[in-house]
Design a binder for these strands. Structure first.
Length: 427
RNA sequence: GGAGAGGUGGCAGAGCGGUUGAACGCGUCGGUUUCGAAAACCGAUAUACCAGCAAUGGUAUCGAGGGUUCGAAUCCCUCCCUCUCCGCCA
């Protein structure tokens, strides 16, 4: 959620920021609505103050044994007026909020301008495309042939967009999760969380999935709970409503969860195999930090995700997303894309973003730092960051396709061997 | 799921429907004292919004939402959560 006070003081900045995202926002309407809300609020509060004063005097009159009926009637009228004004305020404000919740976070000024993914900027590339002396296969051929990946039986269980991993395939996925988590907690200083996969609508709103992206979420309607599309949701909201001590920051959390996504409207686009499925595992990293350091922390966070790809020996590139392709809640995003040798294409395995105070405001995440005079300062909004570290299916794809051999077997990357009981080759 | 108890400020814990935004205590911060510290004493210690240069004033918030009333932390209803016992269950 954007800051209404900021919108008031610099409407053109927001207008331009939203235009850069390809969005036309009727800023003047918002401001007019805001003005009405504020005026009504002032009026109703003034009335309420008069009523409170009147009520207070009734107590004194009654105590003195006087007649209280006239005063009661006067107070009742004041109360009715205040209620009427406040009702109008509440109606208008509800409408205003409903609009605000649909407005995306402005991108930082440094973000490259652009319309869509074609305008994203490649800022770095690591490693090289693996060279094979044979035609490289895609994972949807390699996996089933090795007997570690079963799409047909998955479809029998759950329909399209699901996969069953089997034997060494299942263990390889588990190895990746374990190694990711161990690396983040032991080398990068993260605290691991194991969180609920079902959350309330309120929680979804905190990170920005609701109200705008309801159609992408699986909902358990009988219980008013939704399946998380990413660990970002429960982890970022973990401290929702709290005022943290500045000395605690930054808080760095990592969590492994399955992620559930309806992928409505995505059918047919890069959906073959397990590149885009309705349920996948992911290790996420989340930072709660301050405005002063959120941008530099984003680079650090991205480095933690990159470290994993490098240690796995996977060829990847870093994209800086343009204004038109940056996600709704994000102000600045780097994507990491790994090379799929079997399909000659790049696959997004991580998206690292700073949300500035956008989620902090929605989730009511604040911190307090000592002021210049040493006394506790005013609460400030927390800046949130997150990144995949990393998304499982596409890492699995990249590992299989990168480490495949002529006979269809797959070598196990060195860092994962301890997690696979020393297994060298999946065959 | 059934029965019961309860949800009040950072914590602990009071609160006849009427100067209660909320006692007392602890904690925290500032000051006095001290060579320094402890102890003691004094004072200050929620959040948001609105008006104001500011001082300050106003409104709201005692799990959430409704209701009764001139007035609700206090009464009523609904819901949520926590705890205890029973049932069920990985």
């Amino acid at each position: 959620m954007i800051d209404l006070a900021a919108l008031r003081s610099a409407p053109d900045t927001f207008r331009k920021a939203w235009a850069d995202r390809g969005l036309t926002v009727e800023v003047d309407n918002l401001l007019a609505l805001d003005e009405q809300v504020r005026a009504l609020k002032f009026q109703s509060e003034t009335k309420r103050a008069e009523q409170n004063a009147a009520s207070k005097s009734i107590g004194a009159i009654a105590k003195a044994g006087g007649d209280v009926n006239a005063a009661k009637e006067a107070a009742r009228l004041l109360g009715d007026e205040a209620t009427a004004l406040d009702q109008r305020r509440a109606d208008l404000e509800k409408g205003l909020m409903a609009e605000l919740l649909f407005l995306p976070n402005p991108c930082l000024p440094s973000v490259p301008l652009g319309k869509d993914s074609r305008d994203n900027v490649v800022t770095a590339t690591w490693g090289e495309k693996p060279a094979f002396g044979f035609p490289a296969k895609a994972h949807w051929d390699l996996g089933p042939a090795l007997g570690i990946m079963d799409f047909e039986r998955a479809a029998k269980l759950s329909g399209s967009g699901f996969v069953v991993l089997k034997g060494p395939g299942a263990r390889l996925a588990r190895a990746l999760v374990s190694w990711f988590l161990d690396t983040h907690t032991e080398k990068h200083g993260y605290t691991e969380l194991a969180v609920p996969y079902l959350v309330t609508p309120q929680t979804m709103q905190g990170t920005g999935q609701l109200p705008k992206f309801a159609d992408q979420l699986y909902a358990c309607k009988d219980d008013d709970l939704l399946l998380i599309p990413t660990a970002e949701v429960p982890v970022t909201n973990f401290h929702a409503g709290e005022i943290l001590d500045a000395a605690q920051l930054p808080l760095k959390y990592t969590a492994h969860t399955p992620c559930f996504r309806r992928e409505a409207g995505a059918a047919g686009i890069g959906t073959r195999g397990m590149t885009r499925v309705h349920q996948f595992d992911k290790v996420e990293v989340v930072w709660l930090t301050t405005a002063e350091r959120s941008e530099s922390d984003l680079v650090t966070l991205r480095g933690h995700a990159e470290h994993l790809l490098q240690a796995l020996g996977l060829h990847y590139r870093v994209l800086e997303l343009c204004t038109g392709d940056t996600g709704f809640s994000s102000a600045h995003t780097y994507d990491l894309e790994v090379w799929s040798a079997g399909t000659n294409s790049w696959l997004e395995v991580s998206s690292c973003s700073t949300f500035t105070d956008f989620q902090g405001r929605r989730a009511n995440l604040r911190y307090r730092a000592p002021g210049a005079d040493g006394k506790p300062g005013k609460p400030q909004w927390i800046h949130t960051l997150n990144g995949s570290g990393l998304a499982l299916p596409r890492c699995l794809i990249a590992v299989l396709e990168t480490y495949q051999q002529a006979d269809g077997s797959v070598r196990v990357p060195d860092v994962l061997k301890p997690y696979l009981g020393g297994l060298e080759v999946i065959r």
